[in-house]
Design a protein around this nucleic acid. Structure first.
Length: 519
RNA sequence: GCCGCGUUCGUCUAACGGUUAGGACAUCACCCUUUCACGGUGGCGAUACGGGUUCGAUUCCCGUACGCGGUACCA
């Protein structure tokens, strides 16, 4: 009997959610959905000193925006709840004590100072960072070196202590990674990692194994930075006697800085001028704002698409994928081994493609549940442009200008003037070449336009050009001034398209308005 | 230092022993456009290095170099 696929995403609420983290969720989600399995989210709040208020909620909002809702989570509940590690403290202690009894772990009473002392004392040229391992543990204060009654006494007196794994001296630890194939470590290279901290909280190492077992996780995907810890986790699965239930591992490649080298960090965003979180995040401790893709004007579809292509492709030239397509076509075997540098220009290209591809009206299959035009309206109004959308004008406007918008925020410049007259008209651009002939032309254009029975693009253009010929001026010389009158600047779609859309009264009003400015 | 993982155009990547090493982003040129864009056509541009294995290596093996990750009572 095959087990039902259960994958999990386990963020730590220490502030924000980096795009690398979102990509990890994405791959988890895709794999789960692809196999009809469960995608669960649990919260790794074992590091309480760095726990940030509001970070957990932020994570859920991010998942929601991206359309990656979990089947089980602290908020949704489920069979294996609780999903918050701080609510599972008792469980961890119990299991940790058990492997101490079985001889696979031990108590250690060393203080922070003693540990620091050891790291200095044993530091040599050949050993830059001495580890608490098979070699050095004999010099430390732990239940392996202390006498039994001494240990008992310390324990009875509630002396602060941790539980450490006892790494075997000479053992090959092998496992198969879904992305990397067989990976080998030697136990002598691993240190005796702390499993249970002095404050009673587990470390990630202990918690991840126990939680994965108890929650029946079948596949565990995480960032490559965890690869060196894998042998500890595998040994733990063995020591607990659960090795047959161990999930399959996949260590995902890292997302790297665009310049230089190293993992992309939130500081790179500020430095290089692009977002690194899915949504804006303000750290309550420092009030520092990290910009998000959502606020920068990205569609969730584009964001997800871009992330998926960073380290994966389906082997064809296709680059634009919807979430549903990704679920169908994703395969762990095609995920890259090497890290990928983040490229903001390419990210914007994905957004542009999605702005052009997505239907403007609300979509019934929209994973986010609301239309793209709604987002544009929201952005325009938050920038002070009231959107009067009585006769479906907004959709027409979007269709007309979307090719020139890379980010949703570009609609502010490209679409605002359809709904209100520009605050500033760039008269300086036309004034030097302005003359009485042109003034006269536009005065008469007003009259001609006023008399037009039908108000549509072709007629407007025809009348305009005929009148230009009658005044013996090249139409080209009049087009820019006309644009200034309607738009206020040197941008936007065709002027007759704009005039047709804003209507007769508004067009004439804007011509008059600018003519006055030019006097 | 030690351990692990990587390495194809500037960037993301395709090619699972035989291709003029393909595509996309960026860039440059031209075309389109009486604004700004979009778009179209084309150019530039890569297998880190050295050894094997093979009739033949981007592809398989071994070294070297470089990069990254880990080396915490952080995840």
């Amino acid at each position: 009997m095959t087990k039902k696929v259960r994958v999990r995403f386990a963020p730590s609420p220490t502030g924000g959610l980096h795009i690398g983290g979102v990509r990890t969720v994405l791959f988890n989600y895709l794999f789960a959905k692809q196999h009809g399995g469960d995608f669960i989210v649990r919260i790794e709040d074992t590091d309480q000193s760095r726990y940030v208020e509001g970070a957990e909620e932020y994570i859920y909002e991010t998942l929601n925006w991206c359309g990656l809702q979990p089947d089980e989570s602290p908020v949704h509940g489920g069979e294996y709840a609780p999903y918050r590690q701080s609510e599972r403290k008792k469980i961890y202690r119990q299991y940790a004590e058990q492997i101490v009894k079985d001889g696979y772990a031990y108590y250690a009473f060393d203080t922070t100072d003693e540990l620091n002392e050891m790291r200095i004392k044993f530091k040599t040229e050949k050993n830059a960072a001495p580890q608490y391992n098979y070699e050095l543990r004999v010099w430390m204060r732990n239940s392996l070196t202390l006498k039994e009654d001494e240990v008992k006494k310390l324990l009875d007196e509630n002396t602060p202590h941790v539980i450490r794994i006892k790494m075997p001296l000479d053992e090959e630890i092998k496992f198969t990674d879904m992305i990397r194939g067989e990976v080998t470590f030697h136990s002598s290279q691993c240190d005796d990692k702390v499993l249970l901290k002095a404050d009673g909280m587990p470390t990630y190492h202990l918690a991840v194994v126990i939680d994965d077992y108890l929650m029946k996780i079948t596949h565990a995907f995480r960032g490559e930075e965890w690869l060196p810890s894998a042998p500890v986790h595998i040994l733990l699965w063995k020591y607990f006697g659960w090795i047959d239930d161990m999930p399959q591992w996949a260590h995902l490649p890292l997302i790297l800085k665009p310049d230089g080298h190293g993992k992309l960090s939130k500081r790179d965003g500020d430095r290089l001028g692009f977002p690194v979180f899915a949504m804006n995040w303000t750290d309550p401790r420092t009030n520092e704002l990290v910009h998000g893709f959502r606020e920068k004007g990205f569609l969730p579809e584009a964001f997800i698409n871009m992330l998926a292509m960073l380290g994966w492709n389906d082997g064809t030239d296709q680059e634009i994928f919807s979430l549903n397509e990704l679920i169908q076509k994703f395969s762990m075997e095609r995920v890259h081994k090497g890290g990928a540098k983040f490229d903001y220009e390419k990210a914007k290209w994905f957004n542009h493609e999605w702005i052009r591809k997505l239907p403007v009206s609300p979509r019934p299959d929209d994973p986010v549940g609301r239309g793209f035009s709604f987002l544009v309206k929201e952005i325009l109004e938050s920038n002070g442009t009231y959107v009067n959308d009585d006769d479906g004008k907004l959709n027409k406007v979007i269709e007309l200008v979307k090719d020139r918008c890379t980010l949703l925020t570009d609609f502010v410049q490209q679409a605002s003037f359809f709904f209100k007259i520009a605050e500033t008209i760039d008269v300086a651009a036309i004034k030097p070449k302005w003359n009485e002939v042109k003034q006269l032309f536009f005065t008469e254009l007003i009259r001609a336009y006023q008399l037009m029975p039908l108000w549509q693009h072709d007629d407007l253009e025809k009348t305009f050009k005929e009148m230009a010929a009658a005044h013996q001026i090249k139409a080209g010389e009049l087009l820019l001034p006309f644009r200034m009158m309607l738009v206020g600047g040197k941008f936007g779609p065709g002027v007759f398209d704009i005039a047709a859309l804003i209507g007769k009264n508004e067009t004439i009003h804007r011509i008059k308005n600018t003519l006055q400015l030019l006097l």
